[in-house]
């Protein structure tokens, strides 16, 4: 097992690291936005809940269930989002990505950049063969992140999610190791 303390992923504009307790206030603030709460399931309501969430994430890291990261801007150090590799399945060599980004920083391609870097992490470091992600069909911005990162739409599952009593259809995307350009593999 790699010690998460030693993992720093880098992309053109981002530093991507495991979350630390000091990130709790930022996570709580960012995820309190209605546009975030609308589209994801586990939002910390305050800094204390965010701290608990971070310690849960680190426990999941220890048992190799998921590797969750936060990403921040290189030039300002500002935390702008999270992206995680969840439900790591070594037997079937696959995992599920999830991500969200500070609404104030939407439209700049940061999430696509972070997700693209995490896909490489999945193939090169975790040695997976398949990476999946899904979103509500009412959330085309999230689908665009997956497309920007090279993922393909595979199936649409109707009424896949229930949130606040309503059912939502889901787009399911995936990328295989063999989908990446030859120069990367």
């Amino acid at each position: 097992m790699t010690d998460p303390d030693e993992i720093i992923l880098e992309s053109e504009r981002l530093l991507i690291t495991p979350p630390r307790e000091k990130d709790a206030a930022d996570l709580a603030r960012i995820s309190s936005h209605p546009l975030i709460k609308k589209n994801i399931f586990t939002c910390p309501k305050n800094e204390n809940e965010a701290k608990i969430m971070i310690s849960t994430m680190m426990m999941w890291w220890d048992i190799d269930f998921s590797h969750v990261f936060v990403f921040r801007l290189k030039d300002t150090g500002r935390l702008v989002g999270t992206a995680g590799v969840n439900e790591i399945n070594r037997r079937h060599m696959k995992a599920i990505l999830a991500y969200w980004c500070d609404v104030d920083h939407w439209g700049k391609g940061y999430t696509s950049e972070a997700v693209t870097r995490l896909i490489d992490y999945c193939f090169d470091d975790l040695e997976l063969n398949r990476v999946e992600a899904s979103c509500f069909t009412s959330n085309p911005a999230s689908a665009r992140v997956m497309e920007n990162a090279g993922m393909s739409l595979e199936y649409i599952s109707r009424h896949h999610y229930r949130k606040d009593g309503d059912f939502h259809d889901a787009w399911h995307y995936a990328i295989l190791r063999s989908d990446r350009e030859p120069c990367k593999s």
Partner: peptide
């Protein structure tokens, strides 16, 4: 029929595509 997931599970070392179906 909802679609096909590529290499969704591995059996005896071979990744296999799976068709997905559902009823509501």
């Amino acid at each position: 029929f909802e679609g096909t997931a590529r290499s969704e599970y591995i059996k005896n070392g071979t990744p296999i595509d799976f068709h997905h179906y559902a009823i509501l």
